[in-house]
Design a protein around this nucleic acid. Structure first.
Lengths: 225, 225
DNA sequence: CTCAGGAATATTGTATACAATATCCATATG
DNA sequence: CATATGGATATTGTATACAATATTCCTGAG
């Protein structure tokens, strides 16, 4: 099976269900910024590139639409979502609470394996300091994902994933990674508090981190939207 | 077009898209407890009852699966989700934060129209005190929904809707409304704090309400799961 | 009588065909 | 020359056909 979003065909492993493969492929393409916000996605074209019929394509697109990554208009197709400045503010306001809760729970519930994964994820983020904003965004996303998983709360995991994806979309839209000088220190503070099992400190560190980035990113956006 | 989930055919208005009608119909059926947790949903049977093909049925089922209301196994069909006690605890832990945030934001951002809707929703809840648990569950859900909308935060609205649905599922599974004697007072306290634009009080009132119900509902569940 | 094996049935997953709506472009008219 | 109108084209929405996997139940051996 062959597939690519835009140009060169790309081989990809077919999972048990074709629609799951399409979903993961499209999701990654959007989260990595390969498809820009506002860009249109045609079912037939994508199906031809992937070598699959429209059915699994449609089902994957539908899932991504509900994830908030795509927007659909009846009989008018689907596009990568464009986020307004107000929506970005709203998203960060919620994320501050949820990331705070996630860090607090992770401080209380993380296992030895979680601790190792957290250290590894942070090391990757720090090592990629020179990379492009896409890689940095991806690794930053990954770090926050590991924290959410260390909380061992399925409901939080689902919602945090949703918010992470929306934040990734916002970052690609502003096209700036916003490498704030405090980033590394804030990440380290979160990690330390979690590993120390200091839930209140972990919560506040996570919240501060979200607030810092929210201000930077929202500032980059067109305030009219 | 004719349709029913189980027994007698039921007419329902076809919206612009068939799949949206099926989605709303199925969603209501699950949230109202017409289809019990664990119960299987067959595509062909449902399609015949609704008088539509399998395509929109499948797309609606897929959305509900991602909502967390249904669970699907490859080649084995889809069932109404059954929630474990641990998942219920996790859900309420997240809901405490999110409902708290929602109430706080609503206190700050609600409009005159929101205030009227809030009063009306609470009046309905109180008036239904004698009704069955399904009606009470539905109205309670509605009250919380109105608060979330009054917060005027789209991201919060999406996530809160997700959690509300999961809580409704949990309540139907325990099959007890758990009419705590403090319910009316707690609802009133939330409403008062919101209308007074006292964000901290609204937040704490909402959190207390969630904690109260979480303890009751989780207590009803099989702790082994 | 119990259990293993297998065919028949049923159900989901994917592909394709058909219908309806929207988009685009050419042409004509003011 | 700008704009409206009409048809041709393209794309989405729905229905149906086909393929693959799972379930069921019957049969026969131990």
């Amino acid at each position: 099976m062959i597939l690519a979003v835009h140009h060169a065909p790309v081989a990809f492993a077919r999972p048990v269900l074709v629609r799951d493969g399409v979903y993961e492929h499209l999701r990654r393409a959007v989260l990595d910024g390969e498809i820009a916000p506002g860009e249109r996605i045609g079912e037939v074209e994508l199906g031809e590139r992937l070598g699959v019929s429209r059915t699994p394509i449609r089902e994957a697109i539908m899932r991504l639409t509900q994830d908030g990554l795509l927007v659909a208009e009846a009989n008018k197709g689907v596009r990568v979502r464009t986020v307004t400045a107000q929506e970005a503010r709203d998203t960060y306001a919620v994320r501050e609470e949820l990331d705070g809760l996630g860090a607090a729970l992770a401080a209380a519930a993380h296992t030895a394996a979680d601790a190792a994964a957290l250290r590894a994820a942070l090391a990757e983020v720090n090592a990629a300091k020179g990379g492009d904003y896409r890689q940095q965004t991806r690794l930053d996303l990954s770090f926050h994902r590991v924290i959410a998983l260390a909380a061992h709360n399925a409901a939080l995991g689902d919602l945090a994933r949703d918010l992470e994806q929306r934040v990734a979309l916002i970052k690609h839209q502003t096209r700036t990674y916003n490498a704030h000088p405090d980033t590394a220190a804030q990440h380290a503070a979160i990690l330390k508090a979690v590993l120390d099992r200091d839930a209140p400190a972990a919560r506040e560190a996570a919240r501060l981190h979200v607030r810092t980035f929210a201000a930077l990113v929202v500032n980059e956006m067109n305030p009219e939207t």
